Computed example of a mutant assay.
Amino acid sequence: MSAIRVDSAKPYFATSSLVIGYALCSSLLAVINKFAITKFNYPVWGLGKSGFLPHDPFTWQTAKTFLPAALVFYLAIFINTNLLRHANVDTFVVFRSCTPLLVALADTAFRKQPIPDWGFSSTAYSWAFADLVTIATKMVYIKHMFTNVGLNAWGFVLYNNDL
Rank of each mutant, 00 (worst) to 15 (best):
P57S: 07
F120V: 11
F110K: 04
T38W: 08
H144T: 06
K49L: 14
L158E: 15
Y159W: 13
Y125N: 04
G48Y: 02
A9H: 03
I77C: 05
F156E: 01
P116L: 01
A106L: 15
D117M: 02
A23Q: 04
A3C: 00
F146H: 01
I37M: 12
K138F: 13
G155I: 03
A3F: 07
P114Y: 00
F58S: 08
V94H: 13
F110C: 11
V31T: 05
T99D: 01
G48E: 00
Y141V: 13
L75E: 01
K39H: 15
S27A: 13
A136Q: 05
F40S: 09
L67V: 08
M145E: 01
A128I: 04
P11A: 03
W45G: 01
Y74F: 15
N160Y: 13
A14Y: 11
K64P: 02
L47G: 03
V149E: 10
L101K: 06
W127H: 08
N152E: 08
L47H: 00
M1G: 11
S97F: 15
D90P: 00
N148D: 01
N80K: 04
N160C: 05
K112T: 11
A3G: 08
I32M: 04
L71E: 12
F35Q: 07
V89L: 14
D7K: 01
F13Q: 10
F120G: 02
L75T: 13
T81R: 04
C98V: 10
T59N: 12
V93E: 03
F95Y: 14
V31Q: 04
C98I: 08
V44R: 08
A70W: 04
A23N: 08
D107H: 13
D107W: 09
L102Y: 15
A124V: 09
L158Y: 15
H55E: 08
V19P: 01
L24P: 02
R96I: 14
N160A: 12
I135M: 10
V157T: 12
A69V: 12
A63Q: 12
C25H: 03
S17Q: 07
Y74R: 00
S126G: 12
T15C: 05
L102H: 08
N148F: 02
H55K: 11
L53P: 00
Y125V: 06
A9M: 08
Y12V: 11
A30H: 02
K138S: 11
F40T: 10
I20F: 07
P114C: 02
P11Q: 00
K10G: 02
I142L: 13
